[in-house]
């Protein structure tokens, strides 16, 4: 117990360092540029204390729980050496984390609104909801497939840059065939689908796989899962919009 407390105190010191820039930026613009006093200083300080403690606990839990979990699972799959099971797991992880992602729910609703205003679909609540739900499914399937492709890449040791650059070329080609309203949403959706818990878990899984498979280097092969999970939604949304 004392060792945990000791570790968390250390994490709090790190968290103070991590949060200083935000506090400085906000204070500077509030006091020097806008020349306004701080509203509810008391609430703000309590909130800051929560952020500090929360970040410290999160990072500590990450290193003692999430990272070992991702690595243990990667090792268990390599021992079991069932490719199908591993790929199913990769797909479920990508799909499951994305379908419930709050940022995606928000962005899908916005997208439906924009597409309806532009006259591409009927401007009716039920039509919009159906469009938004389909869009979420499309993105979730795309992230699931992206993680599967990323895992296959780790297993085979394919060079990542060829795959990512082909992805960029596909995005560029699709962009030229898409209406301008959807482009902003499609590009943004790539960034929002990867959440705070998915990222550490996917990173640990990738590095764990690359470490436990012979002939793979954790730096060269372990990273890159998130890159695929970011690129795939852009391609799928642009393509979906053309088909729908």
């Amino acid at each position: 117990m004392t060792s945990i407390l000791h570790a968390i105190v250390g994490r709090i010191v790190d968290a103070v360092r991590d949060l200083t820039p935000i506090v400085l930026v906000i204070a500077f613009f509030q006091i020097v540029v806008l020349q306004q006093p701080f509203p509810n200083l008391g609430d703000t300080l309590v909130g800051l204390a929560c952020v500090l403690l929360g970040l410290a606990l999160f990072i500590h839990g990450l290193e003692s729980g999430l990272f070992p979990l991702g690595e243990a699972i990667a090792q268990a799959f390599t021992r079991k050496s069932s490719l199908v099971a591993l790929l199913c797991f990769a797909f479920c992880l990508g799909f499951g984390t994305t379908i419930a992602e709050p940022a995606l729910i928000a962005i899908a609703a916005k997208a439906a609104e924009i597409v309806a205003l532009a006259g591409h679909i009927e401007n009716d609540a039920s039509v919009r909801d159906a469009y938004a739900l389909n869009l979420r499914l499309v993105v979730a399937v795309s992230v699931g497939s992206a993680v599967v492709i990323g895992v296959i890449r780790i297993l085979k040791g394919w060079p990542i840059h060829v795959m990512i650059i082909s992805g960029y070329l596909i995005v560029t080609a699709l962009t030229f065939c898409s209406p301008p309203e959807i482009i902003g949403i499609a590009y943004d959706s790539g960034g929002v689908t990867t959440s705070t818990i998915t990222v550490p878990l996917l990173t640990a899984l990738g590095v764990g796989l690359a470490t436990s498979i012979k002939g793979r280097n954790p730096m060269l092969d372990g990273f890159g899962l998130i890159a695929f999970a970011c690129l795939a939604p852009i391609i799928f949304i642009l393509a979906y919009n053309m088909v729908a």
Binding site: D43, V51, L53, G54, G61, G65, L66, L69, I197
Partner: peptide, 25 residues
């Protein structure tokens, strides 16, 4: 045991973090 307690810490930490952000920043 360590993994489960780590996961719980992650959840508590993230919630505190979000509440604090909503309150302060």
């Amino acid at each position: 045991k360590q993994i489960v307690s780590g996961f719980v810490l992650v959840l508590i930490g993230l919630s505190l973090f979000l509440v604090g952000l909503n309150e302060a920043l």
